[in-house]
Design a protein around this nucleic acid. Structure first.
Lengths: 210, 210
DNA sequence: GTCTATAAGGCGATAGAC
DNA sequence: GTCTATCGCCTTATAGAC
């Protein structure tokens, strides 16, 4: 009855290989079929295991989805931050917002399963898990709040614009790309980010913006 | 062993009251807890029934969710069409698009449970049901394709704008309102629709659009 | 039209062998 | 670390009484 190595996360004593492998598989299945639609038996089977063996690595199904969701949101945040940090120091707010959108989309479409699980499964998990996840998501949205507030202070966004609604609209449009982007898409992820941020910053109409 | 009255839909022979009541309750619970997260027992209990009694009215859980999803999308489409039809004949494309957004949001936030179920539960239901629903949703999106194409032809949307991405961005931003709009919201549904369509048509930046 | 009772299977989780 | 075996519960769905 050997107890598990390091269930909370972080460094595992042994190879720690199968734990990561299980998380990868769980992320893929949760993303495709949802939390309630994915039995532990399926995750175990995809990892060439029996269902009971998963409990050596994870305390419960809830702990498993929680870790996947946490990793997913962190991936998105880190990708967006990295993309913005790569800009030259004197970049405009416009460039910051486009870089953030590119980083966000890259995490969603290229790194994939963890990020998409965190977007698609938020509402399906038990309330206790939603409570934990919403805090992480809020800390990511704080970055967008700051980027948008900076843009408005610098005069790159009109003073009368409701930044809350703008932030929610931008993030929903970016997240929705997950549902229509396919492998054969002619546009690159960067192009899609530029197009979408162009909608919001410049508008699609012909009249002058002001 | 009296067979059920009219399971497919349409006119029921008796009062037909409980059938509609069950659909209302199912829509509310599916919207809040999801398809896989809502057992038939819960729906029956909310209707002051036992689970087995539901089968007098519906053949299966799948038929129940299918009807809810169909009604939900139809509600959204009818609300958007009605809103556009109420405009004067010589209305601009800008006015058409804003009216459509208002109708869309009204169905989502005011008529409520059917529409929100159709937005939130699409990915959770069995593939066979998704296949039916996607056709109805496509027929609704065809309306937006036409409204946007008309706007571009009339010169109210810049010629180089990618209408597919624009349509998906607009609809995702509208649908996302469902997740943050609360009863105590200071803005009306119409104001939110105007603000969001203003983002897309005029942009939030200061520079001229062209 | 709704009930009781139950079938038949799936689920998350645990115990102990190896 | 993974297995087998199983517990206890929940699920959709059916059959027949009322």
């Amino acid at each position: 009855m050997a107890k598990s190595p390091a269930k909370t996360s972080a460094r595992s004593t042994g190879t720690g290989n199968s734990r990561k492998q299980i998380l990868d598989i769980a992320a893929a299945l949760f993303s495709q079929r949802g939390y309630n639609g994915t039995p532990l038996r399926d995750i175990a089977a995809a990892a060439n295991m029996k269902a009971g063996s998963l409990y050596y690595h994870f305390d419960s199904k809830e702990q498993l989805i929680l870790e996947v969701l946490q990793i997913g949101i962190n991936n998105i945040r880190e990708s967006a931050v990295k993309s913005v940090a790569a800009l030259p120091a004197e970049s405009s707010s416009r460039e910051v917002l486009i870089a953030a959108a590119k980083g966000h989309l890259e995490a969603l479409l290229e790194k994939g399963d963890y990020a998409s699980t965190s977007i698609r499964n938020y509402r399906q998990v038990p309330d206790a898990i939603q409570d934990v996840v919403v805090k992480i998501r809020n800390s990511y949205e704080d970055l967008w709040r700051q980027w948008l507030a900076d843009a408005q202070e610098k005069g790159e966004i009109k003073a009368e614009v409701n930044l809350k609604i703008l932030r929610l609209a931008i993030l929903s449009a970016l997240n929705r790309v997950l549902e229509w982007y396919t492998e054969g898409e002619e546009l690159t992820v960067h192009e899609i980010a530029e197009i979408q941020m162009g909608f919001f910053l410049d508008g699609v109409g012909l009249e002058v913006a002001d």
